[in-house]
Simulated assay, not measured.
Amino acid sequence: MSEGIFINHQRAQVSALTMETQQRLIKDAVGELQQNLNKVIGFWEGPDQEFYYGTVVPTWQRQIELLDQQLGTLVQILQENSQTYARTAARAASNFENIR
């Protein structure tokens, strides 16, 4: 049995692109949800509305930004690792060809 790390570069790239697409879809869905909530919250009065805008919205925004950063970091790491592995594999193949 062969040991080592093997990466299917096509799958890695597809996964990275899929994650980027999902990241955009999440942002779009959250934006739409916020717009719909704002329509409802506009009818609220007093402390409920103040609590929503003063506490809920800032917390919501921080969590969405954190999720976006984490997904972005995962995509970047996946792309960088795949590219590094591909360069290393190509360099190793080239070195073996030069042995002849």
Rank of each mutant, 00 (worst) to 15 (best):
M1G: 11
S2C: 06
S2P: 13
E3L: 01
E3K: 01
E3Q: 04
I5Y: 01
I5P: 02
F6L: 04
F6T: 03
I7W: 03
N8Y: 02
Q10G: 07
R11P: 03
R11V: 14
R11K: 08
A12D: 02
Q13T: 11
Q13L: 01
S15K: 01
S15N: 08
A16L: 01
L17M: 04
L17E: 06
L17R: 00
M19P: 06
M19R: 00
E20H: 02
T21A: 12
Q22M: 06
Q22G: 02
Q22W: 03
Q23S: 10
R24H: 12
R24F: 10
L25H: 07
L25R: 04
I26F: 11
K27F: 11
D28I: 06
D28Y: 02
D28A: 07
A29G: 01
G31W: 04
G31K: 08
E32Y: 10
E32R: 13
E32L: 12
E32S: 14
L33S: 15
Q34Y: 10
Q35I: 11
L37S: 09
L37E: 13
K39I: 12
G42M: 11
G42L: 07
W44H: 05
W44I: 10
W44C: 05
E45V: 14
G46P: 03
G46R: 02
P47I: 14
D48E: 14
Q49G: 13
Q49P: 13
Q49W: 10
F51A: 03
F51N: 01
F51V: 04
F51W: 12
Y53Q: 14
G54I: 04
T55H: 14
V56E: 03
V56R: 08
V56T: 03
P58A: 10
T59V: 06
T59Y: 14
W60K: 07
Q63D: 12
I64P: 07
I64A: 09
I64L: 14
I64F: 05
E65H: 10
L66W: 09
L67R: 01
D68A: 10
Q69N: 09
Q70A: 11
Q70T: 13
Q70W: 02
Q70V: 13
Q70G: 05
L71A: 07
G72Q: 08
T73I: 15
T73S: 15
L74N: 06
L74C: 13
Q76E: 15
I77A: 12
L78F: 02
Q79H: 02
Q79R: 05
Q79K: 03
E80L: 15
E80F: 15
N81H: 11
N81F: 05
N81I: 03
S82R: 00
Q83N: 15
Y85Q: 03
Y85T: 00
A86S: 08
R87P: 10
R87K: 14
R87F: 10
T88M: 01
T88N: 06
T88I: 01
T88W: 03
A89Y: 10
A89F: 12
A90V: 13
A90D: 13
A90E: 15
A90W: 12
R91C: 01
A92Q: 08
A92N: 08
A93F: 07
S94C: 05
N95Q: 06
N95R: 08
N95F: 04
N95V: 08
N95T: 09
F96L: 09
E97K: 10
E97D: 15
N98P: 03
I99A: 01
I99V: 08
R100V: 12
R100E: 12
R100I: 13
